[in-house]
Simulated assay, not measured.
Amino acid sequence: MPRKKPITPFGWAIKRRLAELQMDQKEFCLRNNIPEYRLSNLVTGARKSEKYRKKVVCLLQLDAEEENG
């Protein structure tokens, strides 16, 4: 089944870092009190969700280039 929305470069940075940590999106969200739909919004670019974007960047230690991607 094809995706409804493509993954953004920032979304790929999130997915890549979660893979490095051997953690899936659901586990990451549960551990860090982030609604799953908000992380999904960040991955697809459906919403900016600045509050959660900053939190995800900090928690996953993403660099500025990935953050702006």
Score class of each variant (00 low, 15 high):
2 P>C: 12
4 K>E: 15
4 K>V: 15
4 K>W: 09
6 P>D: 11
7 I>C: 05
7 I>W: 04
7 I>P: 00
8 T>L: 03
8 T>Y: 02
8 T>S: 06
9 P>N: 09
9 P>C: 09
9 P>K: 08
9 P>M: 06
10 F>W: 01
10 F>A: 02
10 F>T: 00
10 F>S: 00
10 F>E: 00
11 G>A: 09
12 W>F: 14
12 W>S: 14
12 W>L: 14
12 W>H: 15
13 A>H: 01
13 A>C: 08
13 A>K: 01
13 A>D: 02
14 I>Y: 01
14 I>A: 01
15 K>M: 11
16 R>M: 12
17 R>T: 11
17 R>V: 04
17 R>F: 03
19 A>C: 12
19 A>Q: 14
21 L>Y: 07
21 L>H: 09
21 L>S: 10
22 Q>G: 09
22 Q>Y: 07
23 M>H: 05
23 M>T: 09
24 D>N: 13
25 Q>N: 13
26 K>T: 15
29 C>T: 08
31 R>Q: 14
32 N>Y: 06
32 N>A: 05
33 N>C: 12
33 N>D: 15
34 I>A: 08
34 I>L: 07
35 P>Q: 06
37 Y>N: 14
38 R>M: 11
39 L>W: 02
39 L>S: 01
40 S>Q: 10
41 N>P: 01
42 L>K: 01
42 L>P: 00
42 L>Q: 01
42 L>H: 00
42 L>M: 05
43 V>W: 00
43 V>M: 05
44 T>C: 08
44 T>L: 04
44 T>D: 05
44 T>E: 08
45 G>M: 04
46 A>P: 02
46 A>T: 11
46 A>V: 09
47 R>S: 12
48 K>D: 15
49 S>K: 10
49 S>A: 15
50 E>F: 07
53 R>E: 06
53 R>W: 02
54 K>A: 14
54 K>L: 11
54 K>D: 10
55 K>F: 03
55 K>Y: 04
55 K>P: 02
55 K>C: 04
55 K>Q: 12
56 V>P: 00
56 V>W: 01
57 V>D: 00
57 V>Q: 00
58 C>I: 13
59 L>P: 00
59 L>E: 05
60 L>Q: 04
60 L>A: 04
61 Q>I: 06
64 A>H: 08
64 A>Y: 06
65 E>L: 06
66 E>S: 05
67 E>W: 01
67 E>Q: 07
68 N>I: 10
68 N>F: 10
68 N>V: 11
69 G>L: 11
69 G>N: 13
69 G>S: 14
